[in-house]
Amino acid sequence: MTTAVYIEHRAGSIKRASLEAITAARGIADRVVGLCIGTADTQTLRTYGVHEIVAIEHAMLTRYSSQAVAEAIAQYVRSAAVGALFLGATAQGKELGPRVAVLLETAYLPDCVALSKEADKLVAVRPLFAGKIRATVEPLTERVVVSLRPNMFTARPAETPTEPTQTTFSPELSQEHCRVVVTDVVRNEGKLDVLEADIVVSGGRGLKGPEHFALIEQLAAVLGGAVGASRAVVDAGWRPHSEQVGQTGKTVSPNLYLACGISGAVQHLAGMSSSKVIAAINKDKDAPIFKVADYGIVGDVFEVIPKLIEQVKQLKQSTAS
């Protein structure tokens, strides 16, 4: 079976979620096709063992339109013997996946965290009810569109790089397909995003005031992580909504989630329980966050964090030398 992977890239540089999707596709398909709008980093696609790179080219794709891109992908999949389409469940992937599935009249399996084959059929595991349940879901159509939750599949280069064939696909698009376009992207420059960081250090009400978030920022900086926040501190206006983790905020699954002064209300747990490692600092030993934590410190954030920053700095120095 051939699986196509939508390659999300910015000026050629490929998003990790797409590399994870390629790695997952290699595990279940004989042949992997990388679908790019324009040209992505060919060398990386080669390293990741893609068999064919298809550059989708059209004058109407110079400005990003989810409608037009979905239409172009669907036209390609229809034209080729592709059994499955994988996408990273990113902001972009979550808009494209369902749209392509409707155009192809196929099943869409959203935000999956594991894949396997049962009786030679692709099945996926996806969390329901904010991770309280894991459901195994099977497509009832021949083709399938699957989006994969970022950081749940490891991106691994292929054992032997491939020599991918490179082709161009020209979809038929009209103004009808471009009734929504992205006109601008405002980047939070110099700021790691909780959705993309390997480490997220979050602060909650235990910080007692917005001015004390400098502690969280320093700790995040020495760890090379992003700053997150609980709902309480976002609602209080201490931190921007873009940093909020949890229900009504973002769902993150970093390698390390470090919760500081966050009690761990169920709404917060909904947004971070799939993190690989959870650590917590809280002065209340009965705080619910400790029930889901791998490692915890019962202590005052104002005393513990400065010491922790020092120790991490020492560790970084000793491992660097």
């Binding site: 869409y108 099945v123 991770g131 309280k132 459901a135 195994t136 159509t141 400790f290 889901v292």
Partner: peptide
């Protein structure tokens, strides 16, 4: 177009 074939409660494997 799709069907849930199994449900399970995830097992917490936290070091704690």
């Amino acid at each position: 177009r799709s069907r849930h074939i199994r449900y399970e409660v995830p097992q917490q494997k936290r070091a704690n």
